[in-house]
Design a protein around this nucleic acid. Structure first.
Lengths: 113, 113
DNA sequence: CAATAATATGCCGATATCGGCATGTGTAAA
DNA sequence: TTTACACATGCCGATATCGGCATATTATTG
């Protein structure tokens, strides 16, 4: 077995930096593939492939417009990720405190040497 | 080139379901490797490897306790992910509206046939 | 020190990923 | 219909992943 399929898994889909860029770009509005590729400095096939993944997990939708195909954001799939990480909200402060206390202890110990 | 290294990348680290489980479990408190492996039904080497990844991206910290090694949560690294997805918060409602409008249009169109 | 327990690692196999390049498919205009 | 443009796909190579198994490594105990 290897890694879980990137398709049908939003977590994996957004783990790719270039796909993140695409999503961010699409916040500014729909884009045709070539346009998007140009703005992000990637080749057209590359853009198409990433868009395919994003489409398959439902993060983007496409519609035909003449000979172009416009891709638009459908961010609903990001909500579960937001909520999942949100489940750790109280921990990332707490962890901070603990680390802080730990650092204090270290200082203390060092002075007592 | 292949996929971005899972190490040193929180997005990739949490894209693995089993690692997600580990993080969730660790919210309940520190765990030794074997203990954790047992609770999640995975082999020890498997647990160790996932913990290594999580450690390398800074999502867990470990400390020695006798012949055991206790792993604890350090959720600070999840904050950027939470914030990044949060940047789409206003879109996942808006997208919904658009879809809704789209569906309405379809209904309308169908009735006019 | 020897024996044991708890972890970490190394190596392997199967598979999936991402990028490039060439080429298919589809649509529109001449 | 031919031409041209926009996009999708297929195949390949290089690499990374994850799991299993066996085996280090490290720490405790007798």
């Amino acid at each position: 077995m290897a890694r879980a399929a990137t398709t049908s898994d939003v977590f994996n889909a957004i783990a790719e930096p270039q796909r993140q860029e695409i999503l961010v770009l699409l916040r500014a509005g729909e884009r045709a593939v070539t346009e998007l590729a140009r703005e992000l400095g990637m080749t057209q096939p590359r853009a198409s492939k990433h868009l395919r993944v994003l489409r398959e997990v439902g993060l983007v939708r496409d519609r035909k417009a003449g000979k172009q195909r416009l891709y638009g954001l459908d961010a609903r799939g990001l909500r579960p990720v937001h909520e999942w990480t949100g489940g750790f909200e109280r921990f990332w402060n707490e962890s901070f405190d603990r680390l802080d206390a730990y650092v204090q202890d270290l200082k203390q110990a060092r002075q007592e040497e």
